[in-house]
Each structure stands twice: as structure tokens, then as C-alpha cells.
Amino acid sequence: MDRIPILKMGEHLLVTIQVDMHDQIALNLQDDLTNQIAKYKAKAVLIDISALEIVDSFIGRMISNIAGLSRILDAQTVVVGMRPAVAITLVELGLTLDGVRTALNVEKGLDILRTALKR
């Protein structure tokens, strides 16, 4: 599999990452999301990483890029479901995902996006 499916729900795009991504899958996801934000005029992107056992600096950079790209395209990004061990590791690695909004689970992530979109 070389692409991660992106689900469209109203103004939201939902992505659930369930595979250990090699670089090309990560880069494809970045491109696909950027294109779909523009195509569907999406206002929000929710990325569920609860299945990811590790986030290294490459994946971390991809997440930051997606958040930055969507901001430029007038969409908000929330990353949800990070495992506690992944959070501990990321901070020790020196990666704090500045500028990326996070929530503990999908429900809380959707709450953040709904509130943000009402403004």
C-alpha cells in the first residue's frame, strides 16, 4: 500500500494512520492532504496517530509540515491519539511539534475543530 486513505466528512478531512510508514507513504500523504484541502475547500484536518508505535523525526517533520501547509490553505489541523510512550520519546528526542494542535482522542479533536470553526 502506497497511500493512506483520506475521508471527507463535511468540511473535515479525516486521516487514520495505521501502517508503519516508509518515506514515500508519508510524502504521498502530505501531497494528498494538501490537494484535497484545496479541492474540497476543507476547513479542518484531523489526523489520528493512535496506531503509531513510534514517531521519529521524519514523521514528526511530516506532521509539522501538514499543519503548516493546511494553515496556509486556511484549514486547521489537530493530531489526536498520540501514545504516552511516543510523547515521552518525542520530547526526549527534542521534537516538540510546535504549532501543531493535539488532542487525546478523536472526540476531543473534533470538539476543538468544531469550536474553532464556529468563530
Partner: peptide
């Protein structure tokens, strides 16, 4: 344990890259 596992796999991923 899970934290040690996660740290070690992440370190390995960085060095492999």
C-alpha cells in the same frame, strides 16, 4: 517496557536514516 521499547525503536529509526 513500552517506554524503553519506543525509545529504542525511535533511536534505531533515526540512526538507520
Amino acid at each position: 517496557n513500552v517506554v524503553n521499547q519506543t525509545k529504542f525503536i525511535t533511536a534505531a529509526s533515526e540512526l538507520a536514516r
